[in-house]
């Protein structure tokens, strides 16, 4: 009885389907988390969808107001939960809905990327892109290329993939 409740709750929340990693997903395809901004990349991805373009299904999209809101901690969290790759994507420089969020984000990630690499995380696991609302094609190619790159990466054991 109790077990059924747990299962019901899990199904309702979609835990199994959407958890970033965990035992269930291990044998499956690598999971990629995309943190995208609400105004450009999300709409770009939306355009790809409404245009019926097909792209790698490894990606799970998380929408935030702006790349400026995407704290590097989110990337750490995604890796912690077992993601194999993380994409951060937003408006092209000059196009930010909030004027300068993407510029700030670019500075932060320049440093964070260097730090990750220095501490021994394969920098190929993190990707950045500027994708506008009209660039459904670019979204498809970025996701497909990134997924292929991730699939080719060796099963290394950097600080996030222990245990």
């Amino acid at each position: 009885m109790e077990n059924n409740i747990v299962e019901d709750v899990q199904n309702a929340r979609g835990d199994k389907e959407y958890s970033a990693g965990g035992a269930k997903d291990k044998d499956k395809e690598p999971r990629i988390i995309a943190f995208v901004c609400n105004w450009c990349t999300y709409n770009g991805a939306d355009l790809a969808g409404t245009s019926r373009m097909k792209y790698a299904e490894n990606v799970r999209v998380i929408k935030l107001p702006c790349t400026g809101r995407i704290d590097p901690l989110f990337v750490v969290e995604a890796f912690k939960k077992g993601a194999k790759g993380v994409l951060v994507s937003g408006c092209h420089p000059g196009d930010c809905h909030y004027t300068s969020g993407n510029y700030h984000s670019r500075r932060k990630y320049t440093a964070f990327r260097d730090l990750l690499s220095y501490l021994g995380v394969d920098i190929n696991r993190v990707e950045f892109s500027w994708i506008s609302a009209s660039e459904g094609n670019k979204w498809v190619s970025v996701i497909n290329e990134f997924t292929n790159k991730i699939k080719l990466l060796p099963d290394n054991s950097d600080i996030f993939s222990k245990k």
């Binding site: 700030h104 670019r106 500075r107 990630y109 990707e127 950045f128 892109s129 500027w130 970025v142």
Partner: peptide, 12 residues
């Protein structure tokens, strides 16, 4: 702060 011409090479 930021500069519009900041390092951009790692971004697709």
């Amino acid at each position: 702060t930021f500069d519009a011409n900041d390092f951009n090479e790692f971004i697709k």
